[in-house]
Design a protein around this nucleic acid. Structure first.
Length: 586
DNA sequence: CCTGACTCC
DNA sequence: CATGGGAGTCAGG
């Protein structure tokens, strides 16, 4: 046996009464959380290490014990595998409690810095421990070699000390609240992952089936306009040699900018890019343009294949939620990305309505109204903007402040405020704002000045942000979550100016969403609701709840979101809107 | 494997 | 000097 760092004990019966803190790490035969099998679980109190190679259900009481802190590096992986195996192999629903994730904390501490947060690098950096990665072997075989045992020990033995070192820095940075929030939110992320999302497969296939006919119809209209003999010349390179290829009209791929650009050029429309906005501005210049826009829209839908993500065991989609994806600490999502499912627009089929709650459940959908401008009002402490944020309609109030007249909800100037105010404070150039607001460049410039004059203190706040970054090297959320800037050299100043205004707002929004999630999760446990998290969309939360409890749970959910808002930004109210429905709408 | 374009907030 | 920020996915080349 190896006694490098203490005893490795194979017999679970020798595990004493659980200490108050344990490092935990699992080894699997694969990296896909929903098909991986567990080959070993390591537990360590920092001295001795226990290794299990079977009977993992004996860990359930430990995982669920709120008095034992489980320290895990990337808890999402370990907990998802453990919980999913328990559910599938033993039909037991495990609800882990009291988790500390050293990876999340490492990310919080190094946010914005190009530092590796991998366990081996964190151990080397914080504890001076060099782990011999040559010990890493595949865990697909039967028994465990001594090298493998030593490897498992390495991965869990130092977790407690690593946490101690991390917490020292956390306390120096005043980020206890943020770290606590992230560690609590691990359980919400786990809930989202394990619950997954249902999809109406029949309906999805029905929608897909109608797309080719729509595309064919558009293509024939294009051919009618351009004529059978229309040809484009496309520059190509083959083995370093340039040559021109002729593509006839019925072989042109209209979704490819490399072909669309020369085609537009040939009919006399010159564009720098083939983006939707660019083409929309020139709709009238040639009848080809609206057809191409329609073609792009429908062709894009062919690439959406969410059905391929359905888990064969659960029949549901289990996306990958990244709790610290963006630098601003929002969630990101992949495989598939549930945060980019198109909103219904009356033109495309309603893709959101394909996604379903659990059987017998309703979807609870709620979001904060105008979250970001309200946060801006709070962080800038601009009295006028705070008053607007606390009025019944923030954009009408903006209009009244700027133009000195009552603005109704139907007044077109309300829409201008909706587009213009936040964008202006984030640093959008008036020229780029003009078309979006439906104004000339001069009008936009005048309006922007008027906005800045109306909310002087907010403007000052924006102008001051870059100075703070230059002084401290970081910006932060209201709750003290930091975003570091490594490069503050002169060539970065322009970028810094924009980021230093945007980041504090966005990252405060992320704090708010995570706080609300944790509050709602606690209520669900306390009131024993049959409810689960499904989706987090930055300022929108989606839950699945049994229909018998949906109304009550929804009321609690909205209340928790409102409270989270005013706890973080006390000078502003945060109204929440939403619906209880069979479909994902709102 | 990168870029442009498109989807979301 | 260039001219809001943050993501992921797809097709083309």
């Amino acid at each position: 046996m190896l006694f490098l760092f203490g005893n490795i004990i194979m017999n679970i019966n020798m595990l004493p009464l659980f200490p108050s803190v344990l490092g935990l790490d699992i080894e699997t035969d694969g990296l896909d959380r929903f098909s991986a099998q567990i080959t070993a679980v390591g537990l360590s109190d920092g001295e001795d290490t226990w290794v299990l190679t079977e009977g993992y259900e004996r860990l359930i009481s430990l995982l669920e014990d709120p008095s034992v802190l489980k320290v895990i590096h990337n808890a999402d992986f370990d907990l998802t595998v453990l919980c999913f195996r328990m559910k599938v192999d033993h039909n037991i629903e495990v609800k882990p409690q009291n988790i500390y994730d050293t990876l999340l904390v490492e990310r919080v501490l190094n946010n914005g810095l190009s530092i590796s947060n991998k366990l081996e690098d964190a151990l080397a950096r914080r504890l001076g421990i060099l782990v011999d990665k040559s010990l890493q072997e595949s865990f697909t075989g039967g028994g465990l070699s001594e090298d493998q045992l030593s490897y498992i020990e390495n991965d869990c033995k130092h977790l407690i000390k690593l946490r101690d070192e991390q917490m020292r820095e956390v306390s120096l940075c005043g980020m206890e609240w943020v770290v606590d929030l992230e560690n609590k939110d691990v359980l919400v992320t786990l809930d989202k992952t394990l619950t997954g999302i249902g999809i109406d497969l029949e309906q999805f296939e029905a929608i897909r089936a109608q797309i080719p006919a729509v595309l064919d119809q558009i293509l024939s209209q294009i051919k009618d306009i351009l004529g059978e003999d229309f040809v484009i010349e496309v520059e190509r390179t083959k083995k370093g040699e340039k040559y021109t290829e002729e593509i006839p009209v019925n072989e042109i791929k209209w979704n490819a900018w490399q072909q669309l650009k020369p085609a537009l050029h040939k009919v006399g429309v010159k564009v720098n890019n083939t983006q939707r906005g660019t083409l929309e501005e020139r709709q009238d210049q040639h009848p080809l343009i609206p057809l191409v826009l329609e073609y792009k829209t429908w062709f894009k839908m062919l690439g959406w294949h969410w059905d391929e993500f359905i888990n064969p065991i659960t029949g549901r989609i289990h996306p990958n939620w990244n709790q610290l994806g963006p630098i601003t600490a929002r969630f990101s999502c992949s495989d598939p990305n549930m945060q980019q499912i198109p909103r219904p627009d009356g033109v495309r089929p309603n893709f959101r309505s394909l996604f379903l709650p659990l059987p017998g459940h309703k979807l609870l959908v709620a979001d904060w109204s105008q979250q970001e401008p309200r946060i801006l009002a709070h962080v800038s402490q601009d009295e006028k903007m705070i008053a607007a944020a606390n009025s019944s309609d923030i954009y009408s109030a903006f209009g009244k402040d700027v133009w000195g007249e009552e603005i109704t909800k139907k007044d077109p100037r309300r829409q201008i405020m909706k587009i213009g105010v936040l964008a202006s404070f984030y640093g959008v150039w008036h020229v780029n704002l003009a078309s979006r607001m439906g104004l000339s460049e001069k009008e936009a410039e005048k309006l922007q000045k008027k906005i800045f004059n109306t909310y002087r203190k907010a403007k000052q706040w924006g102008d001051y942000q870059i100075k703070g970054v230059m002084q401290h090297g970081y910006t932060q959320s209201v709750m003290g979550r930091r975003i570091y800037f490594e490069d503050t050299s002169p060539r970065m100043q322009w970028r810094l100016k924009k980021e230093s205004r945007n980041y504090p707002i966005q990252t405060t929004g992320a704090d708010m969403a995570k706080l609300a999630e944790v509050k709602i999760y606690d209520i669900i446990q306390k009131k024993n609701y049959d409810a689960h998290f499904i989706i987090g969309l930055h300022d929108e939360l989606v839950l699945s709840c049994h229909e018998s409890q949906a109304k009550d749970c929804f009321a609690d959910m909205k209340q928790a979101m409102m409270e989270a808002g005013s706890e973080i930004c006390p000078s502003v109210q945060f109204p929440v809107e939403g619906v209880v429905s069979d479909k994902w709408e709102h």
